[in-house]
Amino acid sequence: MKGTNLGEFEELVLLTVAALTNEAYSVAICDELTSHTKRSVKLGVVHSVLNRLEEKGLVKSQLGEATKARGGKRKRFYQLTALGKSALVRAKSMRDQLWDRIPSLVLKKV
């Protein structure tokens, strides 16, 4: 079902939103991702992914306070919803299960 499966990048963005807690807005998320993944992350991509996650109901957003920076434009802060949290947990547990199934021998050989 659409919305329950997370893409790789979607999962990264969602994790970053969770990690940044109260400071999760598009530019910050973009910077965070860039520094952690060591690859250049485009603002446009992050923007559209956030938009998609919101449509799926995994995050919710609200506009912050107006400041002088950013040409007087307000930031949109994102927060994980319960659905988003469970999606992350589910993704992690699915991976863990898979990890557990690999016999340690196999990894050593490679």
Partner: peptide
């Protein structure tokens, strides 16, 4: 529009 323009402005700075 608002936060998009804001983001663009921040990048511009």
């Amino acid at each position: 529009a608002e936060d998009l323009l804001g983001d663009l402005n921040e990048y511009f700075e």
